[in-house]
């Protein structure tokens, strides 16, 4: 077989492979949007869920998902970025670093239901907080952290060595160099990393069933005292997220319009995750352009 033919066959094979991937993913998204898209309306997005009667919405669940995401990112991003900086800038080639990397890999491949049960034991029972947003946020942090650390490390390693050298040559120390040259250059990567991580968490259900809980108290959106049980912002109240809601409606739902709620919620969920990923790309390249002035 001559080289040119081999090249053609290889090209074709890769095209077919990519096409299969796109077809599978594309048809799933299309299926979800086709079945759920028609149920999405302003009422559906804002009204509270119903337990028995028809006509419920997913307003509180959407709010819970975003708020939980916000809480977990509040914990994940600082720790993850610090960990990533350590691994990229300070960690030597030794046994300790290897052990840390092994831990991160293991944590990353942990099934989320295991994280959920761990959360139930530690964040729900041991702390005495019960099913709560804060327990859920901590469980999500366990899932998120390895990803955030890895994204940070990659972003920092991607900063050209020549910039580091330039900074050191002007009499800057290591910390000043990290703060003023390395982190700003790595910033677009950090932002997209954080957003992609967010998207993954938004769809998480298994880790939240036993931590943030499967119910939501009646929320009073005019209650701004965050310690009030009906305040949407109270981190110690239970909170059912959108993904958990989909799971619950499908497994133990009593409402007559179960398909409508489940399909509609699934469509909303996939749209939000899609939005996250596109925002990550868009924002990442926009910041990159602004910072490099090109």
């Amino acid at each position: 077989m001559n080289a040119r033919l081999a090249d053609k066959i290889a090209t074709l094979t890769f095209w077919v492979g990519a096409l299969i991937v796109i077809l599978i993913l594309g048809s799933m998204i299309a299926y979800l949007l086709y079945h759920g898209g028609k149920y999405i309306s302003w009422d559906f997005l804002t009204k509270p869920a119903q337990a028995i009667r028809a006509g419920g919405g997913i307003g509180p669940q959407i709010f819970n998902s975003f708020y939980l995401l916000f809480l977990s990112m509040l914990i994940t991003v600082p720790i993850g970025v610090l960990g990533g900086i350590y691994l990229a800038e300070y960690a030597g080639n030794n046994k300790l670093t290897e052990a840390i990397r092994l831990c991160i890999e293991t944590l990353n491949s942990l099934p989320s239901i295991v994280v959920g049960l761990f959360g139930l034991l530690v964040f729900v029972n041991m702390t005495g907080w019960g099913y709560s947003l804060i327990s859920g946020a901590l469980a999500l942090t366990v899932i998120n952290l390895p990803l955030m650390v890895r994204f940070t490390e990659e972003a920092i390693r991607g900063v050209p060595a020549s910039l580091r050298e330039a900074s050191l040559n002007l009499g800057a120390n290591h910390w000043q160099t990290i703060l003023r040259v390395v982190l700003p250059s790595a910033f677009p990567g950090l932002v997209s990393g954080a957003i992609i991580t967010s998207g993954r968490v938004f769809g998480e259900a298994a880790a939240l069933l036993f931590t943030a809980g499967m119910s939501s108290p009646a929320l009073d959106f005019s209650q701004w005292n965050i310690f009030h049980p009906a305040s949407p912002l109270n981190p110690f109240r239970p909170a059912e997220t959108l993904a958990v809601h989909i799971w619950k409606v499908n497994t133990e739902g009593l409402i007559p319009d179960l398909r409508r709620v489940a399909d509609g919620s699934a469509a909303v969920l996939i749209l939000v995750v899609l939005g996250f990923n596109m925002a990550a790309r868009w924002l990442g390249s926009k910041i990159h352009r602004r910072m490099t002035g090109t």
Partner: peptide
Amino acid sequence: RKRIGMVFQRPNPFPM
């Protein structure tokens, strides 16, 4: 390094 500075082979201005 403040007293002895270096200019490199490839220009390396900061992206600022």
